[in-house]
Design a protein around this nucleic acid. Structure first.
Length: 560
DNA sequence: GTACTAGACTCAGAAAAATATTA
DNA sequence: ATAATATTTTTCTGAGTCTAGTA
């Protein structure tokens, strides 16, 4: 890229693609797979049957036990039924989907048991599909498309306590699809007998295909892969904005400290919120439509019930205890000592309020971002997250990397630095189901290795003793080889121990999100170059593709 | 001015698939 | 060598942020 700069807002000049791949059509169940209502066999109409299979496929999932999920599902399912079916099927609890469920389980089992040839055939078909639909031409380059397959119909699964869980996500048809391409490009053809909703030529946007989804009424897009020029440049830009913040962050911090004393309530609230965003890397917190989504908050939308003030706690003064659900209903729990002025302000903000009232009642993300824009061009709340994440990585790497450590130990240091960022950003994961077991396995490996090492050491000792007596070349050689063996085992043991530490520390922490979205990849590239750590040890193939620009750009002196 | 909303884009963890390791 | 299992990578699509256009 970097060939030519486009005027403001223009994203491309030429764009040609083959359109989306639609979900495979519904295949009715074989005759012998029965559905029972109230203990009696019932043959469902194709439409009702299709929706029933969505539920059957999820039968083992916790979702299907939830009241809201069942209620939403049943309501939408009934809409797909014939009048007769509607008359009979009035109670979800009387529906028996077990045969369907077993049928699908058997099918997935069969898929696992397929022969090599069959698996290869499927693989080849997928590759063919990718080759045909997975790429587009944007301005002189063939670029990989991220999600060229249209989402298949199914039951909506929100995150957390979502009021719409279980609703039917309808099948997307060509008639729902808007195609975007350049005027001089070949327009993709819709499937036979169908037509597109619209074909447009808008080079002010980056998407190739869009449609409106029926659960929230929001628009979904097909866009390019992170390795593409258009995504890469944007990513680069993001980190450049964060680096600009680095230059003026001290000034901004002084400013909001001043603003804590302002006569204006709005200014004080803005300043305290910004302090949280900066110090704790909280998200901005847009307001959300009540009842449309799970009840989650970010900084500006915090409510009184989400914090607890402790004038003194565990020997620390002015502690704020946060407890709220953030993006994706991930819990944020943190006890933070704050400056006295912040504490007093919070007390003031909470005066005469109910738990469900907004903490920052005079503030929203619009007001905050407008203020930030005045402080620095291009500055918004999320830039603080990027900035603090990247600067933390850089500092931690400096602090944790010991020059004479070996590569595995260096990688552990890297992961620890990465982990510090993930903790800051509250990137969590459910502990893997097999975590305990896998830790135990690793421990027994370590024990076995220790034993081997002890044996090897004993061998070495006796070989040395032999050599002392015999003093011939042969025994000397034996000593040498035993020495090598010990060394090798020591190294292997150390590697395993490092791995165990890394894994233990990582139990509930997800490193991927910060690595992919918050850490300036040039910091990592520079670190790898400086310490001779192969980049493949840190970034896998996909990641290297996404960060190709950084790998190309940064040398070992790069400073964020 | 400002508030509201649609639109476009980034970022998020779970689940599925692929691959590596072990039995 | 093969199958079972563990681990890593990729896919999936939901959930945020933020802006521009409109009332």
């Amino acid at each position: 890229w970097e060939e030519e700069r486009y005027p403001e807002g223009i994203k491309w000049k030429f764009l040609e693609h083959k359109g989306p791949v639609f979900a495979p059509p519904y295949e009715p169940l074989p005759e012998n797979v029965k559905f029972y209502y109230d203990g009696k066999v019932m043959k469902l109409s194709p439409k009702a049957e299709e929706v029933a299979t969505f539920f059957a496929k999820m039968l083992d999932h916790e979702y299907t036990t939830k009241e809201i999920f069942r209620k939403n599902f049943f309501k939408d399912w009934r809409k797909e039924m014939t009048n007769e079916e509607k008359n009979i099927i009035t109670n979800l609890s009387k529906c028996d989907f077990t045969q369907m469920s077993q049928y699908f389980k058997a099918q997935s089992e069969a898929r696992k048991q397929m022969s090599k040839e069959e698996k290869l055939k499927i693989k080849e078909e997928n590759e063919k599909l990718l080759k045909e639909y997975g790429f587009c031409i944007m301005d002189n380059h063939k670029e990989r498309i991220a999600n060229f397959k249209i989402e298949p119909p199914g039951l909506f699964r929100g995150r957390g306590n979502h009021p719409k869980m279980g609703m039917l996500k309808r099948r997307i048809m060509p008639e729902d699809i808007i195609i975007n391409c350049s005027k001089d490009a070949k327009v993709p053809s819709p499937p036979p007998g169908h037509k597109w909703k619209e074909v447009r030529h808008d080079n002010k946007v980056t998407w190739l295909v869009s449609w409106t989804e029926n659960i929230q009424g929001s628009i979904k897009y097909i866009m390019l892969n992170p390795s593409s020029r258009i995504k890469g440049e944007k990513d680069w830009q993001k980190y450049e904005t964060a680096r600009r913040l680095k230059k003026c962050v001290d000034k901004i911090r002084n400013q909001y400290r001043e603003d804590w004393k302002s006569k204006e309530m709005k200014v004080r609230q803005r300043a305290v919120a910004l302090y949280f965003i900066d110090k704790l890397a909280l998200r901005a917190g847009n307001e959300k439509e009540e009842g449309e989504t799970a009840d989650t908050v970010g900084c500006c939308s915090l409510r009184v019930e989400h914090i607890n003030l402790h004038p003194e706690l565990d020997g620390q003064e002015y502690v704020v205890e946060f407890d709220f659900l953030g993006k994706d209903s991930i819990r944020y729990y943190n006890k933070v000592p704050v400056e006295k002025r912040v504490f007093k302000n919070l007390q003031l903000f909470m005066e005469n309020k109910q738990p469900e009232d907004d903490l920052f009642d005079r503030l929203n993300t619009g007001i905050l971002n407008k203020h930030l824009q005045d402080l620095m061009e291009g500055l918004t709340a999320k830039v603080f997250r990027t900035y603090n994440a990247s600067i933390t990585l850089q500092q931690q790497l400096k602090e944790l990397t010991a020059p004479d450590e070996n590569i595995p130990a260096k990688i552990l240091s890297y992961n620890r630095a990465n982990r510090a960022v993930a903790i800051l950003c509250n990137h969590q994961r459910a502990p893997p189901k097999t975590f305990e077991k896998s830790m135990m396995n690793l421990q027994s490996k370590i024990d076995a290795k220790k034993e081997q090492l002890a044996d090897a050491r004993r061998d070495l000792k006796s070989a040395k003793a032999d050599a002392k007596v015999m003093k011939d070349a042969k025994t000397k050689k034996v000593v040498e080889s035993k020495k090598k063996a010990v060394q090798r085992l020591e190294e292997q043991l150390m590697k395993l121990e490092v791995q165990a530490t890394d894994r233990e520390e990582n139990k509930q922490i997800a490193l991927g999100t910060s690595k992919l979205n918050y850490l300036d990849p040039r910091i990592t590239v520079a670190w790898c170059k400086k310490w001779g750590v192969p980049i493949e040890k840190i970034y896998n193939k996909t990641q290297r593709e996404k960060f190709a620009w950084a790998i190309d750009m940064a040398d070992e002196d790069y400073e964020f």
